[in-house]
Design a binder for these strands. Structure first.
Lengths: 229, 229
DNA sequence: TTCTCAAAAATATGATCAAATATTTTGAAC
DNA sequence: GTTCAAAATATTTGATCATATTTTTGAGAA
């Protein structure tokens, strides 16, 4: 069991999933089986099965014409994600807090250090990766598999659009909700931890909403100028 | 577009999905590709792809030994579903209420009439079908695809266990939350509609919880005695 | 230039088979 | 009866191909 061979379709699924989560695949982009086969140097059957799985999760969108794209979020969908994230993720935190131990908080601090380094270096993909890892290390500690799956589905839907946020707001100083969260965990203060995660979600989703309202043409320019530093 | 040919894998997915929702497939039951191929008189590829999709949605559970089963709900998972349903479904109702029109309430009444007939006849599968249809006719009216997908995923997870509830509680008189809901829709009274759905969810999930706590051996006997009427 | 139409190209879908993996059955020994 | 190993069986996984469907391309007409 420990050394169970991971089926190829699972490995491929995880790779495509990360491409979606971290904005390698962008909203509106068509996704084809053969395209992924070539990019990933994989077989068609595992890619097909991974795609089927990801469409079931809302991470990819099956169009009526047998084509598959990365979903684009409408404003009302952002509102839906906003609501759902605020419903599910703090609950995961609430469940996790009584279970938090030093190992967890230490692990979260490590991730957050990487995250802060990525911010300092203007490393967008690093930021997205460690932000995701921070959140899910915490949520996994809750041991609530169904809520966790819901949260992951929400992140998969939001992932490609989050990338559009970063150039625009990279210079914006936001209160560090992660640090607040970690301290609350150490104190087993569920209310503070939940509020910090809620505020973190609000900050992030407010920014996604802004980008959608004002468009992302200004965003592309500021991505370049930020990364030039 | 209107007469788009529906791929076989989608049609098969819908059929298996209903088997799960309405308790034809029971918790713990192994599910094999060849088994479904024979039951559904279908091809292996569409069945495989449907299974992959359903496991992604949590409706089926991939075990570490490459076997697939219908999930069994633990008590903590029931609590998770309880919380998630109470978070998501009333929100769908809240969004739907301002959009409710006479066509919708008429449609809901028709479904509810079928549901009540099924109850009178002791028709368990009919009950499950029309209960599902009632809820989702309402939720679909919200036009909130992401929240709808979350709700459907929750129902898929709970579906097989709901069947275990029915024999046990079929004689229990519960306030008819559906009728209350319809009337609230007619009056565009979102608060009442949401509360009715919340109460409906509580009634249902309390019963699932009870069955899990006390076991279902008594349930099987009462299924038989109820259906003998 | 635009529009139409047919052919070519791209892509998804389903079938089928072999290989890999896991479980069950069988038979022997104690 | 139990235990264990080997054989048989069941099942999943991945490859590969043919078929079906959709999009793109290019030629001709207006």
């Amino acid at each position: 069991m420990e050394h169970r061979k991971v089926p190829e379709h699972e490995a491929i699924y995880l790779r495509i999933r990360e491409m979606i989560l971290f904005g390698v695949l962008v909203p509106g982009q068509p996704v084809t089986i053969q395209g992924l086969v070539e990019v990933l140097d994989a077989g068609t059957t595992p890619v097909r099965e991974a795609i089927r799985r990801l469409t079931a999760e809302g991470a990819l969108e099956a169009k009526g014409n047998r084509r598959i794209t990365v979903p684009e979020l409408s404003l009302t969908q952002v509102e839906e994600l906003y609501f759902a994230r605020l419903s599910i993720e703090p609950k995961l935190v609430q469940i996790a807090v009584p279970r938090a131990n030093e190992e967890l908080t230490k692990h979260l601090r490590e991730i957050d250090n990487h995250l802060n380094a990525a911010i300092s270096e203007g490393d967008i993909e690093g930021y997205l990766k460690y932000n995701y890892r921070f959140h899910f290390a915490l949520y996994e500690a809750a041991g609530a598999g169904i809520l966790l799956a819901l949260a992951q589905s929400l992140w998969l839907r939001a992932g490609p659009s989050l990338r559009g946020v970063l150039g625009r707001y990279a210079n914006t100083i936001q209160p560090d909700q992660h640090d607040i969260t970690i301290r609350a965990l150490e104190n087993h203060d569920a209310a503070t931890a939940c509020r910090a995660i809620e505020d973190d979600i609000r900050q992030g989703m407010d920014q996604v909403r802004q980008v959608l309202i004002f468009g992302d043409s200004a965003t592309q320019n500021t991505v370049k100028s930020v990364l030039a530093d």
